[in-house]
Design a protein around this nucleic acid. Structure first.
Lengths: 164, 164
DNA sequence: TAAATAATAGAATATTGTTCTAATTTTGAT
DNA sequence: ATCAAAATTAGAACAATATTCTATTATTTA
């Protein structure tokens, strides 16, 4: 259990086997009816309903979203861009991250250890728009040392879900 | 428009401004009521309902999923793992990808050009389980040359959605 | 072991999704 | 530009589902 502040205990939610099954189903498809999940878990509608509400209330489930076919919306040119900063002062790091958050082309950005400082996933229409993005938006950010772009040839697997 | 096979025309779906707004809303939260989207777009329930059905039917929307707080399910140790293959024959590539698809710890895997051949996103509980994963599962796959692991220090941004 | 708490099932109700009909708008050919 | 055809939309009617409620059962804990 975690202790936060003074005497405020936050318990890690315990997920039993049914919760885990349920979460797995919801990560695959969150639009089925309560009855369908209930049948899969051999529970009543109410039991499943209450479990889902609890998963939401405790923050295990953070939201429900639609997924798109990127090729159908002209955003299937994906690049994994590695970035090194020049200076790593707190101000520089925070400013860089703040600027990155403004860029709609960036769907993921991780601060990492190792060869580079940041790894970004960028979704644009084509190479031309990537070049435009790089020149006018990304490298326009101060303090970027150098970058290395890995162009995605094929998405072998790409899911927002995690196995638990 | 795309021509596939003999005289079979597949039209790229045209998304108007309302479709784009709607898709943006659905990528943020797909569990609102039709009426809520209708109000946001200043349309009737039916209009929105039909637009959503069309987006689904044409494959723009591929599904609806629940998102989890990885820290709440003990999977918030994220690693971006770069992999080089020894040989790049078609058989080797396909076999490697087939093996990767079996690994539940891997949520994303991209075949990329550049320094490395593949970049994987791996979600596990902690460094100990990552080590275990590396030894018993990943490097157990044949034909892997070398790997470079970038450990995630901080998720600046991480969304499955794309801006259109 | 007993009391308290939490989880579950099934029924009742409220809300929302889905279909239907008619009106309106848009498209495409002449 | 004009008209017919097709697609989109609004509002009402209906069907399905979510949500709440009550009682029962299971689980915890003192």
């Amino acid at each position: 259990m975690l202790y936060i502040g003074f005497n405020r205990k936050i318990f890690m939610m315990e997920l039993d086997a049914l919760d885990k099954q349920l979460v797995a189903l919801l990560q695959e498809d969150c639009k089925k009816t309560t009855k369908q999940y209930a049948d899969a878990l051999q529970l009543s509608k109410t039991a499943v309903y209450e479990r889902i509400r609890r998963l939401e209330r405790t923050g295990v489930i953070t939201g429900y979203v639609a997924l798109l076919d990127k090729s159908k919306v002209n955003r299937d040119f994906t690049v994994l861009c590695h970035i090194r900063l020049v200076q790593h002062t707190k101000e520089n790091v925070l400013r860089f991250e703040r600027e990155i958050l403004k860029l709609e082309e960036v769907s993921e950005c991780f601060h990492v250890g190792g060869d580079y400082d940041y790894i970004l996933k960028i979704n644009v229409e084509d190479m031309k728009s990537y070049r435009e993005f790089m020149i006018t938006k990304l490298t326009a950010i101060n303090n970027i040392g150098n970058t290395q772009s890995s162009f995605v040839i094929n998405e072998v697997k790409n899911t927002p879900s995690v196995h638990i």
